[in-house]
Design a protein around this nucleic acid. Structure first.
Lengths: 156, 156
DNA sequence: CTGACTGCAAAACATTTGCAGCATA
DNA sequence: TATGCTGCAAATGTTTTGCAGTCAG
């Protein structure tokens, strides 16, 4: 039925180990998050749950996202915005972000050689890394084309 | 007298080009920021100004930091905290951050080979980068030692 | 002189928290 | 049954904004 049995088990185990409960709300949120691949913020999630007819309060959403983040199932980033963005994590895969300042689009990329260099840096500073995030801000090719086009028309 | 004449000129020019004014407050903030190398947040800056006997309102500090950030003199990062952190930028130098989750210490590092790989990634996605930030979260060696020591004493 | 700037207090926001009733184990 | 959970509304903390008086050019 669902293809995220593994995540479900991981979360359940995590909760059990801490004496926490597997509630209807937590399960529903996990399912919703793992049914898509998009980035989202707390409000998106509230809205998506509401669309599915499940009214879950903002407070509960925040509380659950904290738990999911703590157990490593959900990533939490700030893209220099006023708020957090979340994303489901795929096993053992770390990705970084290209953020277009013009249209806001976020593209994920994976560059294993960057990960290696990060490890070098950690060794150099005797630092034990638990997570990392890498963001490159700029303009995507589509937006640059649009900008070029509008510049050309302005110069009639 | 001051060793940041260059920054001062750059900022003045930036303001002039946009029809903005070089006010007492803006100048004072620029001087304060470029007189040290530390990371700081908006409130730190308000406090530092007050210590120097210059009362500048929080609102003005925020407004000025925006301008300094826009013209590239000041970097603005979010280290997954609730607020922005600022740092003076040194010409042509980009650095990234190691953040200790235990003591909150922020260590800057420079790894030119990471910068190169970033450029590769941008080429691959036809993306024009304007800035980037890289954060590695974990525990620094001092904190790990403390943690190890307290674990040992607990196991009397 | 004029348009931009400042300080203040209020507003706006995302996120967190206290509490009373509810549901899981 | 006993904790832990939830929703609500209120609180928090940072950043932004409206406004009336002030200042740079």
């Amino acid at each position: 039925m669902s293809d995220f049995q593994e995540e479900r088990t991981l979360f359940t185990e995590f909760l059990r180990r801490r004496g926490l409960k597997v509630t209807r709300e937590r399960t529903a949120l996990l399912e919703e998050i793992f049914s898509t691949h998009r980035h989202f913020d707390a409000d998106d999630l509230v809205a998506r749950m509401r669309e599915r007819g499940k009214k879950i309060s903002r407070a509960t959403v925040y509380r659950s996202l904290d738990l999911l983040h703590e157990c490593g199932l959900v990533g939490r980033v700030r893209l220099n915005e006023e708020k957090y963005r979340y994303e489901r994590m795929r096993k053992g895969e770390h990705h970084d972000h290209l953020i277009c300042s013009a249209c806001g689009k976020v593209v994920e990329f994976v560059e294993p050689r960057i990960e290696e260099l990060q490890e070098d840096v950690c060794r150099r500073y005797d630092f034990l890394a638990t997570s990392h995030s890498h963001q490159i801000r700029g303009t995507c090719s589509a937006c640059r084309k649009k900008l070029a086009a509008s510049a050309a028309s302005r110069a009639t």
